[in-house]
Design a binder for these strands. Structure first.
Lengths: 337, 337
DNA sequence: TTGTATGCGTTATCAT
DNA sequence: ATGATAACGCATACAA
């Protein structure tokens, strides 16, 4: 059913039908006609074609979200926030996943450009890869040129509005809190060396430790993937070959859980033999045993903030919205006697 | 940049430019002209308008996924599968959440109808609510009338192709396995009474127990929300007021985790004092302690299957695709001496 | 207030 | 093989 069929059925012009049904701003249509049109539309089960509307209006109601892996609770929480906020704005969220391959991001941005999405939220953290970052910068520029707006979650290095999670400060606070609990010999599961979020967390953690005179041995800094399995492997290496440590900081919760599993498999008790802390405070992991000390990031709020930022009136300078991260100590890092 | 600008720049007609760039089926365009067009497009940074294409072609590349809560690992795993499969088909996934309110589903379907989505996958399980189900049936019929196709994950009661998870058989197998492990006194955290997935799991579990002569006391069947907090509350009630039980079956993993937390808080040890089993085998929960016995559902595959089903050529009869669920016994339900 | 006519950017039909 | 031109379904500037 098209609008002109409705118009015919109601005995009015296409324009009048359009005005009656859209009915938004200046509803300049006589009440009886309006009723006639609405009834005709109902009778014919008319459903406006959003694509045609988009074309005629010159703007769509799509908001594109780009993540690395939707099954990862970190991203699914952000996605929940983006979904909430975009629905509030009458926008429909489209979700694309890179499957952990940042090199696919520019292509996704180009797709969203073709779709004339109103806004894009890029949730996946940056990597230290100039080539990919340059292509991404270019793709985003193209999107903006076509009239779209953008917000990023992560590191402010793509010349676009960005929600910056205070990874560095949060990790520093965690280091301080652990030190105050009596820990002195630290290990870190550092994640991938080129992963900027992982790097920020590591840097913040080390900075404070150094400040406190407890710099870890280099051999106690173990890189790995940013995943559960990465945490598992890194922890096993640390336990088998590394220097003895009292507490291990995994740069995210999922890795921390992997680390705890590795400890179990190696016959090392947590927290009796070694304490473990993570980062993110993933909701689904709040109930693991022992309860995981971590740094809470309000991920749903991050998603909401990024969405609002992406929809805000464009400014000349890239805006930054900072989101704090607060230490939550639980059973996995008890005070040391 | 529009296609006609590219055509002008290349010195060809709009039609030729379209053919050269689309280049799909019968690419009947001379090679040198083709090159000229492609170069002009590149020079002008032309990006085809997907909305206009959709309108001209009469079909879009949207696939709509409807879930209850994207932050729930159950749904985010299905979403990962749907995203994978739809990308393979060149479709873009849009994601809508009901926030656990099934009554919002028909409205979402209508939105997707307006958007002329190619297909819809409804992942949220049905409730025993005729009113909502009727409205949903009607909304889906409207969507199909407009040319779209649909697949459901859950219970086959909406006259559409459905991926049926073998909840009943899986729960029955679990009951049998626990019984074989020596358990005799069972409790069940049953979830919401009108939640069909919860109900199927409960029914399958009870059926086998009855068969084995171990029917639980009615007081040992405790309803609650389908969430972590629901599991927590139900377990607390069971531990405080219910009959003593040896093992508790929570109808999903997230509830089981809540139940384990409740046990801890009540000073009841798992599995020494009471064993716990769940359902789903959520990846993120594989590492909890004690490791959770559960019934594995291949959720990513479910998402893939549902997507393929939704895209398959429509048939007169609603098709059903069955997905098995297999028992995985871990530490939370050790054999009883 | 209502209707007419045009445009949105593309594909597809029809001549040429 | 290429080029006019008519759809596609709607919104809107302009005219009445």
């Amino acid at each position: 059913m098209t609008l002109s069929q409705v118009a015919r059925e109601a005995g009015v012009s296409l324009a009048t039908a359009s005005r009656a049904i859209n009915g938004s701003a200046n509803r300049t249509v006589r009440e009886d006609l309006r009723q006639r049109v609405l009834e005709a539309a109902a009778r014919l089960q008319y459903s406006p074609d959003a694509n045609a509307q988009a074309m005629a209006r010159g703007r769509t109601t799509w908001l594109g979200l780009i993540v690395h892996d939707i099954a990862d609770p970190y991203f699914s929480s952000i996605a929940a926030g983006v979904g909430l906020a975009s629905e509030r704005q009458g926008l429909t969220m489209t979700l694309s996943s890179t499957q952990h391959d940042v090199a696919r991001e520019p292509g996704i941005v180009e797709l969203l450009t073709r779709q004339r999405a109103r806004a894009i939220v890029v949730a996946g953290g940056r990597r230290d890869d100039d080539d990919v970052n340059d292509r991404m910068r270019e793709a985003l520029a193209g999107f903006k040129r076509s009239g779209g707006t953008v917000a990023l979650v992560g590191q402010p290095l793509l010349d676009v509005d960005t929600v910056v999670i205070d990874n560095r400060a949060g990790a520093g606070d965690l280091a301080r809190a652990l030190h105050a609990h009596g820990y002195r010999r630290f290990g870190v599961l550092t994640g991938p060396p080129d992963h900027l979020t992982a790097r920020d967390r590591l840097a913040g953690f080390l900075e404070v430790l150094t400040e406190l005179g407890a710099t870890p041995d280099d051999a106690a800094l173990v890189p790995s993937e940013f995943t559960r399995d990465g945490g598992y492997e890194a922890m096993r290496r640390l336990l088998r070959n590394g220097p003895g440590v009292e507490v291990v900081f995994a740069v995210n919760d999922v890795m921390a859980v992997g680390a705890m599993a590795a400890a179990r498999d190696e016959g090392v008790r947590v927290p009796d033999d070694v304490a473990v802390a993570g980062f993110d405070d993933i909701t689904t992991l709040r109930d693991i045993t022992p309860a995981l000390s971590t740094v809470r990031v309000p991920l749903v709020d991050v998603g909401i903030a990024a969405t609002e930022l992406s929809l805000a009136a464009p400014s000349s300078e890239p805006r930054l919205v900072h989101v704090g991260a607060s230490v939550v100590l639980r059973e996995s890092t008890p005070p040391r006697g």
